[in-house]
Deep mutational scan, measured.
Amino acid sequence: MQRVNMIMAESPGLITICLLGYLLSAECTVFLDHENANKILNRPKRYNSGKLEEFVQGNLERECMEEKCSFEEAREVFENTERTTEFWKQYVDGDQCESNPCLNGGSCKDDINSYECWCPFGFEGKNCELDVTCNIKNGRCEQFCKNSADNKVVCSCTEGYRLAENQKSCEPAVPFPCGRVSVSQTSKLTRAETVFPDVDYVNSTEAETILDNITQSTQSFNDFTRVVGGEDAKPGQFPWQVVLNGKVDAFCGGSIVNEKWIVTAAHCVETGVKITVVAGEHNIEETEHTEQKRNVIRIIPHHNYNAAINKYNHDIALLELDEPLVLNSYVTPICIADKEYTNIFLKFGSGYVSGWGRVFHKGRSALVLQYLRVPLVDRATCLRSTKFTIYNNMFCAGFHEGGRDSCQGDSGGPHVTEVEGTSFLTGIISWGEECAMKGKYGIYTKVSRYVNWIKEKTKLT
Rank of each mutant, 00 (worst) to 15 (best):
R3V: 07
V4H: 13
M6N: 09
M8G: 09
M8Q: 09
A9T: 13
E10D: 12
G13I: 14
I15T: 03
Y22W: 13
L23M: 08
T29C: 13
V30A: 05
F31W: 11
D33R: 07
D33I: 06
H34G: 03
N36D: 10
A37R: 15
K39G: 11
K39I: 08
L41N: 15
P44A: 08
K45N: 09
R46Q: 12
N48C: 15
F55I: 06
Q57F: 15
Q57D: 13
L60E: 14
E73G: 08
R75M: 07
F78E: 15
R83D: 07
T84Y: 04
E86R: 15
K89T: 13
Q90Y: 07
Q90E: 06
D95W: 10
D95H: 13
C97G: 03
S99L: 12
C102H: 01
D111G: 08
Y115D: 12
E116A: 13
E116M: 12
C117L: 01
G122H: 09
G122D: 05
F123I: 13
E124Q: 10
C128E: 08
C128S: 03
C141A: 00
E142L: 03
Q143Y: 01
Q143I: 00
K146F: 10
N151R: 06
K152W: 06
S156A: 07
R162K: 08
C170F: 00
E171W: 06
P172I: 04
V174I: 06
P175L: 10
V181Y: 06
S184T: 07
S184W: 07
S187V: 10
K188M: 12
L189T: 07
P197D: 08
P197H: 05
V199P: 09
V202A: 12
N203I: 07
A207H: 09
E208V: 05
L211K: 09
D212W: 13
I214R: 05
Q216W: 12
F221V: 05
R226Y: 14
R226K: 11
G230S: 09
E231H: 12
D232H: 04
K234Q: 04
K234H: 04
P235Y: 09
P235G: 05
G236F: 05
P239T: 01
V243L: 08
N245V: 08
N245P: 02
G246P: 05
G246V: 05
V248N: 07
V248L: 09
F251Y: 06
F251M: 06
V257H: 00
K260I: 03
I262G: 01
V263P: 00
T264V: 04
T264I: 02
A265C: 02
A265N: 02
E270F: 05
E270I: 05
E270A: 10
T271V: 06
T271P: 05
T271D: 06
G272E: 07
V273L: 08
K274Y: 06
K274W: 03
G280M: 02
G280V: 01
E281I: 10
N283T: 12
N283I: 05
E285Y: 04
H289K: 11
T290I: 07
I299H: 06
P301N: 09
N304C: 15
N306Y: 04
A307T: 08
Y312P: 03
I316K: 01
A317L: 02
L318T: 01
L319I: 10
L319A: 06
D322M: 02
D322N: 13
P324G: 05
Y330K: 07
Y330G: 05
Y330Q: 12
V331S: 02
T332M: 10
P333Y: 01
D338L: 03
N343K: 03
F348I: 10
G349K: 09
S350R: 14
V359P: 03
H361N: 12
S365N: 11
L367Y: 14
L367N: 11
V368N: 04
L369N: 08
L369H: 09
Y371N: 15
D378N: 12
C382E: 02
R384H: 14
S385N: 09
S385Q: 13
T386Q: 11
K387F: 08
F388V: 15
F388G: 03
T389Y: 07
I390D: 15
N393Y: 10
A397G: 13
E401Y: 05
G402L: 13
S406I: 14
S406H: 13
G409P: 13
G409A: 14
G409I: 09
D410S: 07
E420K: 14
T422I: 15
T422D: 00
G427S: 00
I428A: 01
I428N: 01
I428W: 14
I429V: 12
S430V: 14
G432M: 06
A436W: 11
K438F: 11
G442Q: 15
I443H: 14
Y444S: 01
R449C: 15
K455R: 14
K459H: 15
T461I: 06
T461G: 05
